[in-house]
Each structure stands twice: as C-alpha cells, then as structure tokens.
Design a protein around this nucleic acid. Structure first.
Lengths: 136, 136
DNA sequence: CTGCATCCGCAATGATACTG
DNA sequence: CAGTATCATTGCGGATGCAG
C-alpha cells in the first residue's frame, strides 16, 4: 500500500477533512458520532419520530441526563429536529433530519455487524484468554 | 434475556443480539467499536499492515498508552493480528483480520460521512447558536 | 411531561518514567 | 522499538431536586 511518497508530510491527504489529523474539525465530529448513545438515538429515530419518554423507554440503560444532553447535541448538529406542542402537559417530539438519516445508513451497518458477529468476537476472546492463561 | 413470549408488539424476536437492551452483550461490543481510536486504528490497518511506531505517527494525537491498550483489545476481539519479529530492535507488526475487515466497510462509511458532511454540520451549529442568541 | 442545574464518584485518558 | 507501570487529572455519566 505504499503510495510512493516520503512519509512526514503525507501528501496524499484528501482535500476534504482528514480524521487522522488531530487538529482537523472532523476529528471532533468523529468523536461525537462514535458514541454509544448517539448511535442508539439516531437509529431509533430513523424508524420514526418519538417523544422524549418513549425514547427513554426504548433505549435501555440511558439516563435522563444523557438522553437530554445527547438530544441537544444532535439537534445543534442538524441531525434531528425538535418539535414542541404546547399542550396541557407539554409534549416534545424528536424526528430525524435528512442529514441525520444519511448517517444512519453506515450506523446501521455497524450495529448489524455487532449483532451478527458477536459470536465470532466472543470466540476470539475465549481463545485469547485461554492462550494467555496457558503462559503460566 | 430473550423470551419472545409476552411482547405483543414484537411478533418475531430476532435471534441475534439486540443493542437496545442494556444487558445484551452486543451493547458492550457497540461501546467498544464506537470508539474514536478503534475506528482510526482499524481503518489505518485496513490499508495495510503497520508497525507500532508507524501507527502512532499516522494517527494524530494518540498516546502510546491508548494505542497499546486499544491494540490489545482489538487483538483479543480477533479484529487484528499481532506478529513479533525477534530482530535486533524488536519489531511488532499489526495486521487486520478478515473479521476486522468486515467491520471496516461500515466504519469507512462513517468516516466518509464525517469528512464530507462536516460543512453541513457546522452550518447547522451556526444556525442553532444564532437562534439561541436571538432569544435574548 | 420535559428538561435544566447541581453534586459527586469513578472510570477513562494523558504525561512521565522505566523495562525487555 | 515496543511496550508496561504509576500517578494526576479530567470529564462522563448517574442521582436527585427543581422549574416551565
């Protein structure tokens, strides 16, 4: 995979953002979307709009704080929409935006991988641990 | 943790893991692969095997501790292979496994998204912040 | 019902120094 | 060169209480 360039400057860097550069803004973005709660929230909303309480019930183990906090981040980044109905007890509905939906395609692939390859990973872990034990 | 009995809304419970269940092992797995360093390391190795030092140089901002630690996790999970050459100064080479490569397909999509949609996200942030300011 | 503020423990992360 | 070990710090993330 050598590209024929000398290494220090990495001239083959693409013109758009480069996540491998520590200072690149895309790096922050990566850190944000490579987050457990972000992934689960986006994938839930990709299946249809939900209210706050419904989201909390659907995503096992999330605290009210993390949900609220992550939702706000996602709204700020334009990945989800927030709609308030000023009814008697206030009702807030969250919906995914086209931008958010464009991300869920890849995200779903990651989840798909985790759910289907889980067995392979656990087998690998057992083998690794057994090997480590055998060294004593 | 899968009963498939008392939930009328889910006629057919999937046989594989469900990341939305807090106790499901896939949830831990998700938390592990939804990690900044994991993504960057796997994608680097997907382009070819690398030695420890080369990896550290290629992934901006990673500390030797995080690199070493994440590499060990990935090896344990069967996503990468570790090869030691007992030469004068010892040389260790890391390579992606077929299992690991199967994950990088989706991972690359996430990076692709971050690098290309970065502008949209930043625009959304500006708009959001402006709106927030206007409310005072 | 929704969601913000505060307190706080703990785990993750980084800097440094040391070993094979 | 490739790690491990230790220490200091940060910030995640949970619990609780309050407000709109």
């Amino acid at each position: 995979m050598h590209d024929g360039s000398s290494d220090p400057a990495l001239p083959e860097t693409p013109l758009r953002g480069n996540v491998f550069a520590a200072a690149c803004p895309t790096r922050q973005l990566l850190d944000r979307i490579a987050d457990k709660w972000t992934v689960l929230i986006l994938l839930t909303l990709a299946n249809g709009s939900q209210r706050f309480g419904a989201l909390k019930r659907h995503i096992g183990g999330i605290s009210q704080k993390m949900l609220s906090q992550t939702l706000k981040s996602l709204e700020r980044d334009g990945l989800i929409d927030r709609t308030v109905e000023h009814t008697a007890p206030i009702a807030v509905t969250y919906a995914i935006t086209p931008l958010g939906r464009s991300l869920t395609v890849s995200l779903r692939g990651v989840i798909e991988w985790a759910e289907t390859r889980m067995g392979d990973v656990f087998d690998a872990r057992s083998a690794f641990d057994a090997r480590a034990n055998a060294e004593h």
